[in-house]
Amino acid sequence: MRPSHLFLAVLVAAVWGVNFTVIEIGLDHFPPLLFSALRFLVAALPAVFFVGRPKVAWKWIVAVGMVLGVAKFGLVFVGMDAGMPAGLSSLVLQIQAVFTAVIAAAVLGERPTRVRVTGMAVALAGIGVAAWDEGASGPLGAFALVVAAAACWGVSNVLTRKASPPDALNFMVWVSTVPVLPLLALSLLTEGSSRDLAALRALDWQGAGTLVFVAWISTVFGFGAWGWLLRRHPASAVAPFSLLVPVFGMSSAALFLGESVSPARWCAAALLVGGVALTSLAPRRRPASPPDAGGTAPGKAPIRSSDHAESPLTATR
């Protein structure tokens, strides 16, 4: 990668990590489901008028919008509002790479290699340490909500791979149009219209700033830049930068929110990040070549399995 491309990859990881701290601040201004709905509304408008028509079938846009936007982000915002720390949330969500690999094996028939299985076991050990540490100091229910969000993220990753969008930004903007109304309906049902209206009436510059950051900076810029990098470099070269997200997430939460990081949490971070690295970056099994294939087709370069290493950030934050 060129130095400018390296800088952009680190910048996107930093934005996605700091995003958890910004969400925590935003939850002081909005009920969680309303905040999530507004995030997608601001991400979709006015960008939807500039990215062109959808480049994949609407069934994939709706499916990913419901699983990623409504289920995954609804659970994350509710979990963080219920007491899940921002830094720990940025770490625990990385277990989505394990869920993605398991679901891909079940749905797509992708048999994981021994290295990937080892990575899953290490990452799950990290989740166990994090749960034990959180159980000693915080609500386990909120922790479970974020783990459930990671599982939904894994489902959305597999759906996104099935959709194979040629333009990540176009896809993300159109996906952002789907969750707005379902999340608003859920907010009215569970959080109440009076609480929602009170939050909107009390909107100040800090609240508006959190909306702009999570919608335009984290979603539109983050995915636009990430997709741009993936179009110019193999996924195996871009994906490792996603492992910096919890580093920036935990650091920014400690710096701006005063969250402490216990020795057990550092141990969990090392296990989880290491396990996710093995799970996400290990080459997939190569499909067996037909006996009469004669190797590489004329005029085509051989495909390296490392070029298709799955990125842990197939979906947005």
Rank of each mutant, 00 (worst) to 15 (best):
S90Q: 09
I95S: 12
I95D: 04
A97F: 06
I103K: 00
A106E: 00
A106V: 15
L108N: 05
L108M: 14
G109R: 10
V115K: 04
A121E: 00
A121Q: 07
L124N: 07
I127R: 01
G128S: 09
A130K: 03
A130H: 09
A131K: 11
E134W: 12
S137V: 15
P139R: 11
P139Y: 07
A142M: 11
L145N: 02
V146Y: 12
V146D: 05
A148T: 09
A151L: 14
N157P: 00
T160L: 10
R161G: 13
K162I: 02
S164R: 15
P166H: 08
N170A: 06
F171N: 10
M172T: 15
V173D: 04
W174A: 04
V175G: 04
V175T: 14
V180Y: 02
L181W: 04
L186N: 05
L186D: 04
L188E: 13
L188A: 15
E191C: 09
S193Y: 13
L200T: 13
L200H: 11
R201N: 11
A202Q: 12
D204E: 11
W205E: 01
G209R: 02
T210Q: 03
T210C: 10
T210L: 02
L211I: 13
F213A: 09
S218F: 02
V220H: 02
G222Y: 08
F223S: 08
G224K: 01
G227Q: 04
L230D: 10
L230W: 10
R231P: 00
